[in-house]
Simulated scan of single mutants.
Amino acid sequence: MFRLENTKVDPLHKFPLKERKFARTRTNLTFGLLTLMESRPYDEIKIIELCKIAEISEPTFYNYFPEKDDLILHYIQIWSLFVTVFNEKQNSEGSGYGLLVSLFQYTARESKKNPRILLEIISFQARKKKKLQHQTLTDAEKTLLFPNHPEILSLKIGGIEMLLEKAMNLAQLKKELPKDTNWKSLSLSIASCFFGIPILSFQLGENLETVWLETFHYIWLGAGGRIKEKTQGRRKK
């Protein structure tokens, strides 16, 4: 599960009190949900339980989230921010291929701490028949999560759709794939890999990161792309 960076000074001291309280309460509610999801299905978690963790009343909850499902969307925004920061550190060349590798690597390493959370998120999204509307993280929330990264406020974040779109744009710009690439079909194939592989991987007892990367590499090669040797590895359980 995500952890806040250590800092000696309150990272939100420059923000107004209202913004500080909003950022801390929303973050506490979301982290509280993740904690409970480590041992219980999402549908069994009650709002009143989350309120106890965040030390707020149940009516006050709705000042931060219109409904419980919005906590999942908030979590996805936080996850996207962590993926983006991870990519900034790993993908120095700024390639679309590198961004997608970071997406799979970071998510796999986080899910290894508790696979249930990733499966619950996938199940949640599978049940939704309409496009999910993500709430944007506030500057105070970004600063709370990454107090030691001044550039954090300039990073654009979103869900899996935004990350895939960014990766496709980078790949096109860097000419990492053929000119006649069907970008929409490729994005759908990678998205299918992202959401489908975890279910099979956990059922079969396979290492998620390895299977994710091997499947993604197969898709990438099939689209005419090239793979850097250092990212390929032998499967490990």
Rank of each mutant, 00 (worst) to 15 (best):
97 Y>I: 06
109 R>V: 09
73 L>F: 13
146 F>I: 00
102 S>R: 01
117 I>Y: 02
116 R>Y: 11
121 I>F: 09
84 T>V: 11
117 I>D: 01
72 I>N: 02
95 S>K: 08
86 F>K: 06
146 F>Y: 12
153 L>F: 09
84 T>Q: 09
150 P>F: 03
79 W>Y: 13
71 L>E: 00
99 L>D: 04
148 N>G: 05
139 D>M: 10
154 S>D: 15
97 Y>C: 07
124 F>W: 09
89 K>R: 14
112 K>N: 11
150 P>I: 01
126 A>M: 13
107 T>V: 14
68 K>F: 03
95 S>P: 01
127 R>V: 06
100 L>W: 02
134 H>V: 13
88 E>R: 14
123 S>L: 14
121 I>Q: 03
137 L>G: 00
111 S>G: 08
144 L>Y: 02
97 Y>N: 02
75 Y>D: 03
60 T>C: 05
86 F>I: 05
141 E>R: 04
111 S>C: 07
71 L>D: 00
101 V>E: 07
85 V>P: 03
74 H>C: 07
70 D>A: 12
153 L>I: 11
75 Y>V: 00
127 R>T: 13
136 T>S: 15
61 F>P: 01
99 L>T: 07
116 R>M: 09
73 L>W: 11
105 Q>R: 12
127 R>W: 10
144 L>T: 02
125 Q>T: 15
124 F>H: 04
112 K>R: 12
136 T>I: 15
148 N>K: 10
99 L>F: 13
108 A>F: 05
63 N>M: 11
91 N>L: 00
70 D>R: 11
132 L>Y: 10
145 L>F: 07
145 L>E: 00
122 I>E: 03
103 L>W: 08
147 P>D: 05
137 L>T: 01
115 P>Y: 08
93 E>H: 09
108 A>H: 03
114 N>C: 13
79 W>M: 13
66 P>Q: 09
81 L>Y: 02
116 R>A: 13
94 G>K: 00
91 N>I: 00
97 Y>P: 02
75 Y>Q: 05
62 Y>M: 05
92 S>A: 15
119 L>E: 05
141 E>D: 10
97 Y>M: 05
83 V>D: 02
78 I>V: 10
77 Q>V: 07
131 K>W: 12
141 E>T: 06
72 I>Q: 04
67 E>K: 12
66 P>I: 08
81 L>P: 00
155 L>G: 06
